[in-house]
């Protein structure tokens, strides 16, 4: 295999080749988009193995479904869409599997907004922050979490998010609003405990 093949071609050219069934176009696309898609999957799933498997599946799906790419979006957002949807799929499977070992505490997903304030000056770093975020993000409904990841880890616009998740713009806005509220509650709990 020659990973550098197609190195000079644009994403658009590569996607067009992929859509025509040219597998050689896959490697250069992977070289360009692998780290970014990995970060989408990792921030969603919070586990490197799951993230790697998900990126792998993302590229397999990308090749298999490339003929549906109609050129109206760029390769990057199109791949992001595949990656976030693969992440959601994988999360569902993980949860089904985990359900037999560690049932979720009742009410976890129905956390009401707390009145207490999250101290903006609370300085948490590195692993501690990561763990606290993992817990708080893990309590979000899967699509709210996807909205947060695409917005705050990928800096996507609301329109791009709506497109990636097949949601209406208004639904994306209210999802983001609710998700931030729930995250505030989740992070406060983390600080109190």
């Amino acid at each position: 295999m020659e990973p550098s093949q197609g190195g000079g071609a644009s994403d658009r050219d590569l996607m067009a080749r992929l859509a025509a069934g040219d597998r050689e176009a896959l490697a250069p696309l992977m070289e360009r988009h692998y780290p970014r898609l990995y970060r989408i999957a990792l921030s969603y799933l919070r586990n490197p193995d799951d993230a790697l498997d998900t990126v792998q599946e993302t590229f397999v799906k990308a090749f298999q479904n490339a003929n549906r790419w109609d050129g109206s979006v760029e390769a990057g957002p199109w791949l992001s869409r595949v990656a976030i949807n693969q992440s959601i799929d994988r999360w569902r499977r993980i949860r089904r599997r985990q359900a037999t070992f560690t049932p979720l505490a009742p009410g976890d997903h129905e956390a009401a907004l707390a009145d207490g304030a999250l101290d903006p000056d609370a300085r948490v770093h590195g692993r501690e922050l990561r763990d606290r975020l993992a817990t708080a993000l893990g309590r979000l409904p899967e699509r709210q979490r996807a909205v947060v990841i695409l917005r705050h880890y990928q800096e996507m616009t609301l329109e791009e998010i709506a497109d990636a998740l097949g949601m209406k713009l208004g639904t994306v806005k209210s999802s983001l609003h609710r998700a931030l509220g729930r995250l505030r509650t989740g992070l406060q709990r983390g600080l109190e405990s």
């Binding site: 990995y38 970060r39 990126v55 999250l118 101290d119 903006p120 705050h152 931030l180």
Partner: peptide
């Protein structure tokens, strides 16, 4: 301010800049 703190925490998440292993 509270929600900005949440956004700040998300943006300080070390996973944002993680590199594949």
């Amino acid at each position: 301010d509270e929600l900005r703190a949440v956004v700040g925490a998300l943006e300080a998440d070390p996973l944002r800049s993680a590199e594949p292993e």
